[in-house]
Simulated assay, not measured.
Amino acid sequence: MPTDRRTLLADAAIGVLAESGLRGLTHRAVDRAAELPPGTTSAYYRTRQALLTALVRRLVALDQAELHTMGRGTPAPRDAGELVARISALVERRLTGDGRRRSLARYACAIESVHHSELREILRPRENAARHAVRDFLAAQGLTDAEERTVTLLTCVDGLVFDRLVNGGSVSGAEIGRLVAGSLH
Score class of each variant (00 low, 15 high):
residue 3 T to Q: 04
residue 3 T to V: 06
residue 4 D to Q: 07
residue 6 R to I: 02
residue 6 R to A: 14
residue 7 T to P: 00
residue 7 T to N: 08
residue 12 A to D: 03
residue 13 A to W: 03
residue 15 G to F: 02
residue 15 G to M: 01
residue 16 V to D: 11
residue 17 L to G: 03
residue 17 L to R: 11
residue 21 G to L: 07
residue 24 G to K: 10
residue 27 H to F: 00
residue 32 R to H: 05
residue 37 P to C: 11
residue 37 P to R: 15
residue 40 T to K: 08
residue 41 T to K: 02
residue 42 S to T: 14
residue 47 T to F: 05
residue 49 Q to N: 10
residue 50 A to Y: 06
residue 51 L to S: 12
residue 51 L to N: 13
residue 51 L to R: 13
residue 56 V to S: 03
residue 58 R to K: 07
residue 58 R to W: 00
residue 59 L to N: 03
residue 63 D to F: 00
residue 69 T to S: 15
residue 71 G to F: 13
residue 73 G to C: 05
residue 73 G to A: 05
residue 74 T to H: 12
residue 74 T to A: 15
residue 75 P to A: 13
residue 77 P to N: 10
residue 77 P to V: 08
residue 79 D to E: 15
residue 79 D to P: 10
residue 79 D to L: 13
residue 82 E to P: 06
residue 84 V to G: 03
residue 86 R to F: 03
residue 87 I to N: 04
residue 87 I to R: 09
residue 88 S to D: 13
residue 95 L to I: 08
residue 97 G to Q: 07
residue 97 G to W: 06
residue 104 L to T: 03
residue 106 R to M: 09
residue 107 Y to F: 15
residue 112 E to A: 15
residue 113 S to V: 01
residue 115 H to W: 02
residue 119 L to H: 11
residue 120 R to E: 12
residue 120 R to H: 08
residue 120 R to N: 09
residue 121 E to A: 15
residue 123 L to A: 14
residue 126 R to A: 10
residue 128 N to M: 03
residue 128 N to S: 15
residue 131 R to L: 13
residue 136 D to P: 03
residue 138 L to H: 10
residue 140 A to K: 10
residue 141 Q to G: 10
residue 144 T to V: 09
residue 144 T to M: 10
residue 144 T to R: 06
residue 146 A to R: 15
residue 148 E to F: 05
residue 149 R to P: 11
residue 150 T to Q: 14
residue 156 C to P: 00
residue 158 D to K: 12
residue 159 G to D: 04
residue 159 G to Q: 01
residue 160 L to D: 01
residue 161 V to R: 07
residue 162 F to R: 14
residue 164 R to F: 02
residue 168 G to K: 07
residue 168 G to A: 05
residue 169 G to T: 11
residue 170 S to T: 13
residue 171 V to C: 12
residue 171 V to A: 14
residue 172 S to I: 03
residue 173 G to Y: 01
residue 174 A to M: 07
residue 175 E to K: 09
residue 177 G to Q: 03
residue 179 L to V: 02
residue 181 A to T: 15
residue 182 G to W: 00
residue 182 G to I: 06
